[in-house]
Every structure is written in structure tokens, then in C-alpha cells.
Write a protein that binds this DNA or RNA. Structure first.
Lengths: 369, 369
DNA sequence: TTGTAGGCGTTATCAA
DNA sequence: TTGATAACGCCTACAA
């Protein structure tokens, strides 16, 4: 049976106009009395069609309310115009703006974002990775869970020839593009700022082991202590997991040791630490100074106004997609690394206003808001 | 040429093992010396295959590292296992947890979420709506922009026979399932609480006109004033757009009129209002009391500790997907409405601690944290 | 410039 | 139970 005749048996002889199935390219072709080639050419305006036929096709498209089936197109072209994005948890306020930026950038290029939450669990991540490949996404943005990918996973990704860009976290054993912030520098700036103000014993609440940015922040902290001639006291270093509760526990553990200041390496842990401070009855910045990572629009509206190391979240998301699009565009070189500069935002929690009446030092990276 | 022979011409005679294209179901069938029917049966374990053949198929699948192409499957089954979700802006902290819940719930049922941001612009929304339909999503979660859908859009959706669930905002002219919170009740609770404490003149910062939940919150406010015997002063009512800046402007406009209290109908506007208060030099709760909508884990850690009307965000997202899955499961009745109860969370910004020494009244919906 | 026919990788129908 | 074979809806060499 010829292709064009395939709907004949389904004509609803005389019954009332019922919801018919969506028109296909064949229906349009028949309506416009042209071939599917012509229709396809018009739709993807490849310009190889005469104006007359094009008009006829367009009329038919409008009449039948034709809308190309992107699934079929993807299958035929082996390209889905879809990017997979795996983050630990979109509900962590660090991610929404990154995702937003990724979506914006992707959308501009005709791509769509499939969002997944790994909860920092390798098992969930593995499932999603497989799913994304099965769905034939064109690229993957991966905020890797701690730990490496299995050889099978690496082979899977390589076989699929899908570009992967790592977001904020490297993955041992996986050579891939990477978009991150300069976390070592961020921690360094934070500690240097605290030292400059006069704080001596500076505590540190870090991220989970095995996460590259946590390592970098910790390195920056340790290096900064040393270069500022401050003693490193191991009992002032706490390893958290970037979630509220670990920050709370860190507060309970660290604050009773009466550090001058504490550097908390993300916002959620800072939230937990402040809760602990409340319970203990210590106030910031009067009883201890604090600087945290990640800045948010609401930080200036509540007390204590947090001094932070702002990470350019929107830029992170945008660059992830850009890197991916470059690869999809045929760029074939070795793995790229984009490292964005963090920025110290001085407010009040660091005790700056308490300890000095000067304006902050004129360092270009310092910004008072 | 027969189907099974189609890859013959591509054998790379003797060259080094190069990245070959992914195995298809035909390859597996050939390897296992069975038909594609058998392979398909095993993969989707339809149980109609003998154990012997099943074993052979499984071995072949492992050997070839076969992974079914979900695109092809979707095309054939006319089902994509994908849900589209259009929110105004994932970077608005109201949405991440809703999206997270939707993703969790969807994932459990084998569905994936395609995320879109409309920025409250009808034009962007329209583009996304078309895109989602072209991609043949199985269902759509829609946080509608103000304004109605065009007749063409409504027809488009109806023709596609794709279930749509509205999130937090009704859409005039569109009969669809709806998942929302009881916003009128929320505003009512907030104002009643303020009145109970003794506040007389209560200002209001509302959401954008044309958004149903903004209307409901406003209705609740007005009704609460009346039923508490308080005068409604139009100059204490400000219409914002749920974004920070409008809250700021609201603060500049309202606070100089020295209201006893102000009800701000979302968090972002509250952030803006607090900024305005800072600039004006008014303090909360000493100079004015405040209650806002939306609760977040960090609100208890900073000052003033906000008294809020918590909206069950996770439940919202979960119910959206549930409603959709019900429809996909064949549920065919008329439009459903799920309305979730908000909850007053008393902290300090309402001035409760200032004005009374009693414990809060024993109303079940009141929760002190 | 336009048309024809085969391929994309599944599922589903109908015989065997 | 299995196996051919036709959809699914689009793209695209290759022909005309």
C-alpha cells in the first residue's frame, strides 16, 4: 500500500467532525498538491522551493493547523535539540539562577533543558545519565556527585559521543569541559579580608570531601592563613555537606571555641550556623565575624547583613551551555576550562564596620554594597 | 534491500575498532538469532518469550551494550514520558521546590520534566506552549501569565489532547485542572493575626492584576479588614508584581504613611520592602509590623525573623504531576481543583513578642517556630 | 525545482 | 511462542 493512501481507511464517513489526529507532513502535501519534499523544504525554509508552491504549502499548513512532530524530526536527524542538566538539587538556592541562565541560553539557540536532581547520590545520577543518553540528548551539563564515574559509564558516554560539561565539580578520570569559579581565590579573598580587619583565629566550615570546589575552598583557606601569618588550628576546621543541618552542627561545634571569625563555604550552611549561634546566644558580628559563599538578592535586607564571596551564577549557567553548543558546532579540541572570578561583597557580618572606620581598601575585587 | 542487511556496507574491514554507531534492536536480534519482536518482548518484559530466547537476547544486549532509543519508542507509541513545565521564573525562590517536587513525582512514574521560563510574558509563554506541543509532551504544568489564551492556543491544546494543569493561577476561558493554595484564607489568617495582636491600620502589597492568586489574597485582606472591624484605606494598598523592585517601591510609598503593619504577599516583595524600610530608617517590628507570604528555611536565621503564611510548595508540585498522571491514566471527568491550606508561621516581624506576653492562641493552623 | 523512496529505531498487527 | 512487516512522521540522497 502506498504511503499517501494510508489514512484512507480512517475517514469517518459522515459522522460529526470529531477530534481528528494531528496532521502530518503527508496531509499537508496532499492538501497542497505537492510532495513531502516540498513541504519539508518550505517548513525548514531551505529556499529551494518556488514561491508559488511555497504559498500553497503555507496555506495548507495554516488550514490543517500543521505542526511538525519534533520527535520524528529528531529521530530522522539524530539530533534532539535537548540538553540534559543534572544538578544535586534545584531547591538549593545556588542552582536556580544557574539553571535559569542555562535555559535562557539554550532557548536562544533552539535548545530545551531536561532537568534532573541527583541529590548527590551516585545511584540517582547513574540512572539519570542513562536516561539522558537513551533520550539521545545532544549534550549534558553535569554537577557531579562526589566520586568517579564507573568505567562502564565512561564508555557509555564516550560511545554515545555526547559532549559533557562539568559544572563546579571536576570528575576524576573524566576528561571533559569544565565550567567553575575560582574557589581557591574566593576563600583566599575572604580570609585575607578577615585578617586585614584584624581577626586572628578564623574557623572554616567546608564542603563535602571528594568535591573539587570544596577542596579548592579549603586550600584557599589554608593558604590564606599561612600567607597572613595566622596559625592553623585543626579544631577550627569543620567538614560539612553544603546543607543547612551540617552548618548547624558546625556552629554548635565551632562557635563555643570562640573563634574571631568563621568562613562558611555556602549559604545553606551559613543559615544553619546562624541558627546555632542563636541557640548558643552568640551574635554576629558582635561575638564573631562571618563571611559566607554565594550571594543572594535578599542578603542585604536582613540582619546581620552577610559579607559574602559572590559566585557569578548566571554566568556559570550561560557558559555551560555555550561550551556545549561549541562542541555541537563541531569544535573538536581538547577539554576546555572556564574559571570565573568570584567577588568579595563586604557588608556587616565580617565586622568590618565594628573594627574600623576607614572605607574598605581599594582593591578592585572588593565591592561594598 | 532487506532491513537486517542494512549495516553490511558499513563494516570497517580490518580497521581498528572505531567508535561505531549505537546498536539498534536489529543488531541485537541478529546477534541473538531471533526476531525484533522477541527482543522487544524481552526488553519490555512482556513475558511472552521463552526463557531460552530471553537469555540469548539478554546476552546479546549486554554484549552490544544495547540501549533502546527512547525517541523511536516515543514516536511509535505516541507517548514521550515527558511533562512540560512553564513557570514564570525558576530563579524566583517560590518555584524551585515546586519544580523539585514535580520532578521527584514525575521521575517515580518514569516521566521527565522539560523546564521553561515565561518571565510572565505572554509571548514567551506562547512560544513555549507551541514548542511543548511540537515535542509531543504528555502533559503540561502551566503557571499562567496574566491574561487569557488566544482561541487559537486553546484550540491547539484541545486538538493535541494534552492535559494541562494550572499551577497557582487560573486562566480565564480555559477549563483545566487547577492546583493552588487557599490564598484568600492565607491573607485572612495573616490580617486576623495582625488584628488580634492589636494592629489597626494594616497596609497591603499585592501581586499583579490579572493573576488569580493576587486577587484572592487581596480579597482575603479586604474581607479580613471588614470582619475585624478595621477601616480600609485605599492609600494603604499597593499593587506590585511579585518582584523585588516593586516591593521596594511599595515600601517607599507605604511606610511613610506609618501603618501599624503591612502584609506583603510574597517574599521577593518583602525583600524589597525591607530595603526601603532601611533607607527610610524604619525598623521592623519596632516601627511597623510585617507578615509576608512564602516561607523559607533561612527565614528563622536572620532578623527580623519573618512571620509568614507558608505555602506548601512541595505539595503543590507533587499534586500537579499527580493530577496530570491521573489524566494520562485515563481519568476522564470534569476539571479538578486541588486547594491546599496555607499555614501561619508566627515569628517576630509581626510584633507578636512586642505586644503580648501570652503564648499564641491555640488555633490549629497557627504554628510558632 | 520537484518528486520518489529509503532510512531513523521502535512498537504493534497479523500470520504462521 | 515467534516472525515478518507495516506503521509512527520526518529528513534526504538520488532521480527526474
Amino acid at each position: 500500500m502506498s504511503r499517501t493512501g494510508r489514512t484512507k481507511g480512517k475517514s469517518n464517513g459522515g459522522r460529526r467532525p470529531q477530534a481528528t489526529k494531528a496532521a502530518s507532513i503527508y496531509d499537508v502535501a496532499r492538501e497542497a498538491r505537492v510532495s513531502v519534499f516540498t513541504v519539508s523544504g518550505v517548513i525548514n525554509n531551505k529556499g529551494r522551493v518556488s514561491a508559488t508552491l511555497a504559498r500553497r504549502v503555507e496555506a495548507a499548513v495554516r488550514k490543517l493547523n500543521y505542526r511538525p512532530n519534533l520527535l520524528a524530526r529528531s529521530l530522522a536527524k539524530r539530533q534532539t535539540y535537548t540538553l540534559g542538566m543534572i544538578v544535586t538539587d534545584i531547591a538549593n538556592p545556588f542552582f536556580p539562577q544557574i539553571v535559569r541562565a542555562a535555559e535562557d541560553t539554550a532557548q536562544t539557540a533552539g535548545y530545551t533543558i531536561l532537568l534532573c536532581n541527583s541529590d548527590d547520590k551516585q545511584e540517582k545520577e547513574a540512572r539519570y545519565l542513562e536516561l539522558l543518553l537513551s533520550r539521545r540528548v545532544d549534550g549534558i551539563i553535569l554537577n557531579k556527585t562526589p566520586g568517579k564515574l564507573s568505567p562502564a559509564q565512561r564508555r557509555m558516554i564516550a560511545d554515545a559521543k555526547v559532549p559533557v560539561v562539568l559544572l563546579m565539580r571536576t570528575c576524576p578520570g573524566l576528561t571533559a569541559d569544565l565550567v567553575q569559579t575560582d574557589d581557591r581565590q574566593g576563600a583566599l579573598d575572604a580570609v585575607s579580608h578577615l585578617a586585614r580587619i584584624g581577626h586572628k583565629s578564623i574557623a572554616f566550615v567546608g564542603g563535602p570531601g571528594g568535591v573539587s570546589n570544596a577542596q579548592a575552598r579549603r586550600d584557599g583557606y589554608l593558604f590564606a592563613l599561612e600567607s597572613n601569618g595566622l596559625e592553623h588550628k585543626p579544631e577550627l576546621l569543620y567538614e560539612g555537606d553544603y546543607r543547612i543541618d551540617s552548618g548547624y552542627r558546625a556552629g554548635l561545634a565551632l562557635l563555643p571555641r570562640l573563634p574571631d571569625a568563621v568562613l562558611v563555604t555556602n549559604y545553606l550552611m551559613m543559615v544553619g550556623l546562624m541558627k546555632a549561634a542563636d541557640e548558643i546566644g552568640m551574635r554576629c558580628p558582635e561575638d564573631f565575624a562571618a563571611v559566607s559563599f554565594d550571594d543572594y538578592p535578599w542578603l542585604g535586607s536582613f540582619r546581620p547583613r552577610l559579607t559574602t564571596i559572590e559566585l557569578p551564577k548566571y554566568e556559570l549557567g550561560r557558559n555551560c551551555v555555550r561550551v556545549l553548543l561549541d562542541r555541537l558546532g563541531g569544535k573538536n579540541g581538547r577539554a576546555t576550562m572556564v574559571t570565573l572570578a568570584p567577588q568579595l561583597r563586604v557588608r556587616e557580618s565580617c565586622g568590618f564596620m565594628l573594627r574600623t572606620r576607614e572605607r574598605p581598601p581599594a582593591i578592585s575585587q572588593v565591592l561594598v554594597s
